[in-house]
């Protein structure tokens, strides 16, 4: 029972990452009608905002390490620690949360630049051309990051206070042995809050209402005198923020490298297709569903029956769902058909 609960939590964690990326993908697709293959790159760029913030905070001075006598060894001592002492160390410790704050304006700017600078020129083109240009953009962004930060993953750590394991079992009156890392819980709940925030924004604000109206019938909204294009640009910026913040928060779980976006993008497209093209609740539901299923497929007992199932389960499910429900779980008629 405990094992199942842990596996469920773990799956929700993974699912949260898929859902956040898929949510942005669907938002962009629903509003602008563009299949954005560079969306994974935004997730990766978010992760590298965390890396950059950390590098900035730990900008160091080389000092001789007296404890090594064999040869002249040096230690890196961050200037922040030299100037501010313990407070400096605390700031460095909190570099990931600081990066989340930094990522919001940075990702908004990147998103706006991407949409205004490149993608808007392709609205009238075919889907195939949109895919080619956004895929090309993803490769270019990946290579720029590789050239700047190198090809190897750069580990980031969560603040000390949330780096251990939470006694989940004891909190809920279950087995004492049931623990789960704090940061993953923080990640899960923050993701839920972000998803809730995006839905609330679309559902309960006038701005969101206009965007939804535009998604349903762009022409009519335009005829009413509303500059729907500008609103959609903002939506692209919001999707970039969501992907970027998800990327920042994922760094303590998985050290980022330039390929991170591509790894998640492929899965996220499966998520979007399974959830139903253009359906926001579908994307979120499918994200969590596939995360949980993937997590359960990795259990020893399951792998004993079907070896290697953990590697292919997501694609099997995609095949099964598309065979039985060709529009995906919550797909509507007439979208992408």
């Amino acid at each position: 029972m405990d094992a199942l609960l842990l596996q469920l939590l773990n799956g929700l964690d993974k699912g949260a990452a898929y859902a956040l990326i898929a949510l942005g993908l669907t938002l962009v697709f629903g509003t602008l009608g563009v299949v954005n293959f560079a969306h994974g790159a935004l997730f990766m760029l978010g992760a590298f905002v965390a890396v950059s913030v950390n590098e900035l905070l730990t900008f160091s001075k080389r000092v001789k390490d007296e404890s090594v006598t064999f040869f002249d060894a040096y230690k890196e001592q961050p200037y922040l620690e030299i100037w501010l002492g313990d407070f400096g160390s605390a700031i460095i410790d909190w570099s990931v949360p600081i990066a989340i704050l930094a990522a919001i304006p940075i990702m908004l700017l990147i998103g706006l630049a991407m949409e205004r600078g490149l993608i808007r020129h392709f609205y009238k083109r075919s889907h195939a051309e949109q895919i080619l240009v956004t895929f090309g953009l993803a490769i270019v962004i990946g290579e720029i990051v590789k050239a700047t930060f190198g090809a190897n993953p750069i580990p980031q750590s969560a603040p000390e206070i949330v780096s251990g394991a939470a006694p989940v079992g004891a909190l809920f009156g279950l087995s004492e042995a049931l623990v789960y890392p704090w940061w993953r819980l923080v990640y899960l709940f923050s993701s839920l809050a972000i998803i809730g925030g995006v839905f609330a924004f679309l559902q309960f604000t006038t701005y969101g209402m206009v965007v939804r109206a535009g998604m349903a019938d762009r022409e009519t909204v335009g005829l009413l005198g509303i500059n729907i294009e500008r609103r959609f640009t903002i939506v692209f910026g919001i999707a970039a923020i969501v992907a970027g913040v998800a990327g920042v928060m994922y760094t303590p779980i998985l050290p980022p490298d330039y390929n991170l976006g591509m790894n998640f993008l492929v899965l996220s497209f499966v998520v979007v297709v399974v959830g139903g093209m253009g359906s926001l609740p579908g994307a979120v539901a499918a994200g969590f569903l596939l995360g949980v299923v993937q997590s359960f497929a990795s259990m020893g007992a399951v792998k004993e029956i079907v070896p290697g199932i953990d590697q292919i389960i997501i694609y099997l499910i995609a095949v099964a769902i598309l065979l039985t429900r060709p529009r995906g779980l919550l797909g509507r008629k007439g979208v992408m058909e």
Partner: peptide, 18 residues
Amino acid sequence: RTPLGAGDFSQYITPVLD
């Protein structure tokens, strides 16, 4: 057995706990 370079091994570690 876990794939080389999996990155996130958590789904393989949670079953160990129980």
